[in-house]
Structures are given as structure tokens and as C-alpha cells.
């Protein structure tokens, strides 16, 4: 696909975000009926400015009343996906965050924690090399000590 085609990039973003939101639903964080509305909110935020912050990282996120605490999930892409990133590079690591509307401080702290961790190029390299969920959890555990 053409990474300079906005429609194609929007399609990719929608697929990635829907898959990640669905994973959060599967983990029991909100009702199935809320999936599409959360996807819409995350995409609306994305339209205000890309969360592809560069260094092959994207942090799609939103606040939504369907959740009562901050939740998140991480996804990896082996090939890298176009995400209209600030540095125009493909994204390999996605971290999706959803938080309640009334806790912007938690939301900002979570974003900071993700960005601080992911700006370590060695960490991102090791994360991208993970092949199983257990390996990813182990990597997240090493990061969370400093969160």
C-alpha cells in the first residue's frame, strides 16, 4: 500500500485500533456494545493529530466513560505499518490507552511512562524481537519497575 495515501493510512489506523480495542474487550474491560464507540473516539483523537510520535512508536489513546480505570494494550507489527507518523517512518510498536474522562492526570502520567520507556531504542529493539506474549510481558515487567 501507499503510505502517502491518507485514505489507505486511515484504513490501517482503523484496523489496528479496532483490533486493539477488541482485545481490551476480550480481556473483560468493557461491554461488547462499547467497542465501536471507543474505536470512534480513538480515531477522532487521531484525526486531531497523529499519535505516531516517531521512533516507530504510536500511542493511540482516548478517554471514554465505558472504563472506570486506565487500561491499555500493546501490539507489535513485524512488517511495520504506515501511521502518518511525525517522522514518516512505519510503526512497529502500538500502545493503546483508554482512561475515564475524569482522570486526565492518570492519562498524562501513563502517556509519559510509555513515551519515557519507548524512547530507549534498545528497549524498543528488544520489544520488537519478542515472539510470544510471555516474552512481551517479561519486557513490560522490566519497564514497569521504573514506572
Amino acid at each position: 500500500m501507499n503510505p502517502d495515501d491518507p485514505a489507505a493510512v486511515t484504513h490501517v489506523k482503523t484496523d489496528v485500533i479496532r483490533e486493539m480495542v477488541t482485545a481490551l474487550h476480550a480481556a473483560g474491560h468493557f461491554n461488547k456494545d462499547d467497542i465501536e464507540d471507543i474505536v470512534r473516539e480513538v480515531l477522532r483523537r487521531e484525526q486531531l493529530g497523529t499519535t505516531g510520535i516517531g521512533r516507530n512508536i504510536a500511542i493511540p489513546h482516548s478517554r471514554h466513560p465505558a472504563v472506570d480505570r486506565l487500561i491499555g494494550t500493546l501490539a507489535l507489527s513485524e512488517k511495520g505499518l504506515p501511521f502518518a507518523s511525525l517522522d514518516k517512518e512505519p510503526v512497529y510498536v502500538f500502545v493503546l490507552l483508554v482512561s475515564p474522562r475524569d482522570r486526565p492526570g492518570d492519562h498524562l502520567r501513563a502517556l509519559e511512562a510509555v513515551v519515557r520507556t519507548m524512547r530507549n531504542a534498545d528497549y524498543v529493539k528488544a520489544l520488537r524481537a519478542c515472539k510470544t506474549g510471555d516474552e512481551i510481558w517479561a519486557m513490560l515487567e522490566t519497564a514497569s519497575a521504573g514506572w
Partner: peptide, 8 residues
């Protein structure tokens, strides 16, 4: 942008 977010 990364530096500014981390400045929290």
C-alpha cells in the same frame, strides 16, 4: 514532542 511529553 517526545521530550515534551516526558517532561510531564
Amino acid at each position: 514532542i517526545i521530550d515534551l511529553i516526558v517532561l510531564m
